[in-house]
């Protein structure tokens, strides 16, 4: 391998494509474990993971919790509602306090872009970014990539369309970085104020488009992003217009390649960014994404805080 051993996972942008492929390969045995009646391994027994969610989250927190539990690690949860943040403690002090409890890894979500990097520069243990502001959500991009690779057999040179509030989406940024490294041509589509010109410079092969029909034509993968309700309060974007112009409907999906995959990072606003018929339709990968999320996070925790070796010291995971 030509890449350095992963110390933290702060974002997709700095990772070479080979390292991403390696991470996805490592997830495979953990995907198989998800299908077993007994899912618990002892690989990380005695290790502990802090789940520091400075911003509310249900699915990502539970997914990381499940990943840690199935590897035998203990978790210490920390949530915004009960946090000392409310008492005025700085992020640096919180990070040092958590580290002093001697966990092996910090998984963190925070509303400020760069927060995971900030903590990684101050603690001596691995930090996993579970979403930092508008910046990145790297495990979401990894689980999306795993889902796409499983369904299509390859990640190379795909036609991708991402729909919605691109500029405020860390999921979009991580996915753009990841897929672009594999030669994807990526179309970003949404209302103009949510798809500023600068987003085209995020990575090679990115263009923007304001017509959903044009954006979907020829797409092999369509990602619909969650529209945050609070953004609807910003000037200039009535909900009805968003639905009229950008909702992913069966008729619009028919413009994409036959069998095009539909992904959504969840939680979905049915009837806003996605028509329920698409969300529940045969092309939807939404629940697979969730299952793959646990596998990818298991692989990641294993690589970051597991034994010194590779997967050899894993108990054999039967097919």
């Amino acid at each position: 391998m030509t890449f350095e051993r992963l110390r933290h996972l702060l974002g997709i942008e700095p990772l070479p494509a080979e390292q991403i492929s390696f991470l996805l390969d490592q997830a495979r045995p953990f995907q198989q474990i998800q299908r077993h009646p007994l899912k618990k391994l002892a690989t990380l027994r005695g290790k502990s993971v802090v789940l520091a969610f400075f911003e509310p989250s249900t699915r990502t927190r539970i997914s990381f919790g499940a990943a840690a539990a199935r590897l035998g690690a203990d978790t210490m949860a920390f949530q915004a509602e009960s946090s000392s943040l409310k008492k005025g403690e700085s992020l640096a002090d919180t990070a040092w306090t958590l580290e002093a409890m001697k966990p092996d890894c910090i998984v963190m979500r925070h509303a400020a872009s760069g927060a995971a990097q900030f903590v990684s520069e101050r603690v001596g243990i691995p930090v996993v970014n579970a979403g930092d502001g508008l910046h990145e959500h790297p495990t979401q991009a990894l689980l999306d990539a795993l889902t796409i690779r499983d369904r299509r057999g390859s990640l190379e040179n795909l036609e991708i369309t991402i729909l919605g509030d691109i500029v405020h989406s860390r999921v979009a940024r991580s996915n753009v970085h990841l897929l672009s490294k594999f030669g994807a041509r990526i179309t970003l589509c949404g209302p103009a104020m949510w798809v500023p010109r600068e987003m085209e410079s995020l990575a090679p092969g990115v263009r923007r488009c304001f017509s959903i029909d044009e954006a979907l034509r020829g797409a092999e993968v369509v990602m619909a992003l969650r529209v945050q309700q609070e953004r609807m309060n910003e000037p200039g974007l009535p909900r009805e217009d968003y639905i009229r112009l950008y909702q992913l409907t069966p008729a619009r999906l028919a413009l994409a390649r036959p069998g095009a995959l539909v992904l959504h990072p969840g939680p979905m606003n049915r009837g806003l960014e996605i028509d329920p018929a698409v969300a529940d339709g045969p092309q939807s990968c939404v629940l697979e994404q969730v299952t793959n999320g646990v596998a990818v996070r298991m692989a990641l925790l294993y690589l970051l805080i597991g034994g010194p070796g590779g997967l050899e010291d894993l108990p054999h995971a039967p097919d």
């Binding site: 942008e13 872009s113 760069g114 930092d132 502001g133 508008l134 910046h135 990145e136 500029v167 860390r170 940024r173 500023p196 600068e198 987003m199 410079s201 995020l202």
Partner: peptide
């Protein structure tokens, strides 16, 4: 400043 860097960093 708004521009490619702010877009990349996810900073307003």
């Amino acid at each position: 400043r708004e521009g490619p860097s702010s877009a990349r960093l996810g900073l307003s």
